[in-house]
Simulated scan of single mutants.
Amino acid sequence: MLTPVEAARAPGLVLGIESSCDETGVALVHADGTGVPRLEAHALHSQIEMHQAYGGVVPELASRDHIRRVLPLARQVLAEAGRRLDEVDVVAYTRGPGLAGALLVGSGVACALAAALGKPVLGVHHLEGHLLSPFLSADPPEFPFVALLVSGGHTQLMRVDAVGDYRILGETIDDAAGEAFDKSAKLLGLGYPGGPALSRLAEQGDATAFKLPRPLLHSGDLDFSFAGLKTAVLTQARKLGDDLAARQADLAASTQAAIVEVLLKKSMSALRETGLRRLVVAGGVGANRELRRQLNAACAAARVRVHYPELHLCTDNGAMIAMAAAMRLQSGHAVADHRYSFDVRPRWPLDAIDT
């Protein structure tokens, strides 16, 4: 039987909506106030095919597509979970960071649904969603842990002691790891989305073929910098000239090796400095197979547990938003309310999550 405090913090059925960039995600998570909330169903629509013709995300097109997709996805999720809309207890949405227009679609739909149902609503930090996404896996982590957050626009190392208790240990001072993958891929003529294409091509190349820089690898701190690596890739591509096509896989492999080595060494340094024995890797770059291979080996040698989200939950998705909302509510770090005059925060540092 739940204690009065646990009962007050049992959010029940949480509907989560993600629309920060080029994926529309909807999910249902159930939280009874104890233990890790349970994912009941989720659905995701990617806009990659639509944006490929432009070589990147077109914000206006992204917003319009979210409008078309979010309600059908919500109906799909409810049907798969065998739930009715009026069973939803809380509606959560991505408040930021992200594209302003895209965020407004998700927040507007969430607040309209909540108002129609007379249920409370909660805005969620997109990066906290990524950070807590490994709790959706079959092998969820336990607090405390070091987190390596590597999404398209963010690279951060954090000490995580509990839900809402995050301390940044290091972060990128310019390009993030995901941007380094994407921009390098574009320089190699691999199109959009570049990161996954570069990683696939790298499997066919020689990672030692080109000597590329590892920015800030020996800086003595836990900060990152990948802008110089992108410049080095550009310089090498120009040197190759007409030979680039023949050496494309080698340059891709060398680029990936540089990024992975920096992420690996900084993560292991963070574990040593904090004395923690658990590492969580989250965000889209966390799906990179070479990064996982090297982290798994290093963590096994150091007798450190490493946790990842399921591969299909590494990219932006509604499940991570519903989970983050449920965990914040369950831990008492957030209170859903009936104020439907929403606002969004396209720029919202994770260390300012409670402001």
Rank of each mutant, 00 (worst) to 15 (best):
M1S: 15
D22C: 00
A27F: 12
L28R: 09
E40C: 12
A43G: 12
Q47L: 06
E49I: 09
Y54T: 09
V58Y: 11
P59K: 01
A62N: 09
A74P: 03
R75V: 14
A81E: 00
G82T: 02
R83S: 15
R83D: 00
R84E: 15
E87V: 11
V88A: 07
G98D: 12
L103A: 01
V105I: 15
V105S: 04
S107D: 13
S107N: 04
G108K: 04
A110S: 04
K119P: 06
P120E: 05
L122R: 06
S133T: 08
P141I: 10
L148F: 03
V150A: 15
G153K: 11
T155D: 11
Q156T: 15
R159F: 12
D161Q: 12
D165T: 10
R167S: 14
I168H: 09
G170M: 05
A176D: 02
E179P: 03
S184K: 08
A185K: 05
G189R: 12
P196R: 10
R200S: 11
A202P: 05
E203Y: 12
E203K: 15
G205P: 09
L212T: 07
P215H: 03
L217P: 10
D223G: 12
K230G: 01
V233K: 12
A237C: 08
K239G: 01
A245S: 14
L251T: 02
A252E: 01
A253D: 05
S254I: 04
Q256W: 04
A257L: 03
A258M: 02
K265H: 14
M268N: 01
A270M: 08
E273C: 06
G275K: 06
G284H: 04
L291D: 07
R292C: 00
R292H: 03
R293W: 01
V304A: 09
H307T: 00
H312S: 14
L313D: 08
N317P: 00
N317L: 09
A319V: 01
A322L: 08
Q330L: 12
G332T: 08
A336R: 04
V344G: 03
P349M: 02
L350V: 10
